[in-house]
Computed example of a mutant assay.
Amino acid sequence: MAFAGKTVLVAGGAKNLGGLISRAFAEQGANVVVHYNSASSEAAADETVAAVEAAGASALKASGDLTVPANVAALFAAAKERFGGVDVAVNTVGKVLRKPIAETTEEEYDSMAAINAKAAYFFIKEAGKALNDNGKIVSIVTALLGAFTDGYSTYAGGKAPVEHYTRAAAKEFAPRGISVNNVAPGPMDTPFFYGQETPERVAFHKSQALGNQLTKIEDIVPLVVFLSGAGWWITGQTIFANGGYTTR
């Protein structure tokens, strides 16, 4: 198995895309650190941990609000204490908001910036400090980085800095062989998406991609796994995986 003996930390690893990533790495032999944000997702984390262990891998469940840098550091410290090191760090944490700029509150802006940009920055920072040599860092961003649209200013705007963090980190961590990349899915078939859109807009988004469908989490997981292993030569990049929904 490709990741036998390796340890993979998945931020937001309890459910949806993160949960499937956790399971996929377990099936490849990796130990998995399943991070979840709060009590509301603990049951999903328990299910994912059980699935990881059923695949024959070891799991560590860990919680924490990653907009607090100390919690990010504690997450990596717990992973190192349990497994002796971390080889792959995947950040799926994010928050979606569709709202006109004129109606966006300061509280909403601060929350979106903290979850989508600040947490990503300190995740990359702590991963760069904690990862074993030749480790891999993958952040989930959004295909909206290549789009010209309304309504998603704080979401696309919050994810946009992650590209700059990634490029800088790819250079700074290169002496230790660590690659750093982003994956930018199109609108994904998850509860996060449907809560922001009307049925008419969902139909439009589907019409813009191959097969008249939204991006599925199953479409993204193989790419994350590839970038974490055989795709090690790719670094500092944002890979748009959206069925032709958009590009630059």
Rank of each mutant, 00 (worst) to 15 (best):
A120C: 11
I178N: 12
L9G: 09
T198R: 10
K171W: 04
A4Y: 03
F25A: 05
M1H: 13
A70F: 06
A30Y: 09
D150A: 14
G195R: 06
I124N: 08
A160V: 05
F204I: 10
A14F: 06
R98V: 11
G5C: 10
K129L: 14
V32N: 09
S228T: 07
A156F: 03
V72C: 08
A160R: 15
T238P: 03
F3S: 05
W233S: 08
V141T: 15
I140K: 00
A78S: 15
S40C: 03
D87Y: 02
L66I: 11
F193P: 02
F76H: 13
E106V: 11
F240T: 02
H205P: 01
R167N: 05
A73S: 14
T215L: 01
V202G: 09
P222I: 04
T247A: 13
A230E: 14
K159N: 01
N37A: 14
G244M: 12
E218I: 10
T7I: 05
G243D: 07
V141M: 05
G84Y: 14
D87F: 01
Y121I: 06
G231E: 06
K15F: 10
A203D: 14
A45W: 06
V221N: 03
K99G: 07
P187K: 10
G158L: 11
S111V: 08
K136V: 01
Y155A: 06
F193M: 14
R82H: 05
D150V: 13
K61S: 15
K216D: 03
S179P: 09
E172R: 12
P185S: 08
K159W: 03
I140D: 00
P161M: 02
H205Q: 11
I217L: 06
G236P: 04
M1T: 12
A45P: 08
G85F: 02
A114G: 15
F148R: 13
W232T: 08
I21Q: 01
S228F: 02
L144K: 12
L97N: 02
S22K: 09
L66M: 12
K171M: 03
D133L: 08
V10F: 07
A11K: 04
K95P: 00
L17S: 03
F76C: 12
V138I: 15
E103C: 07
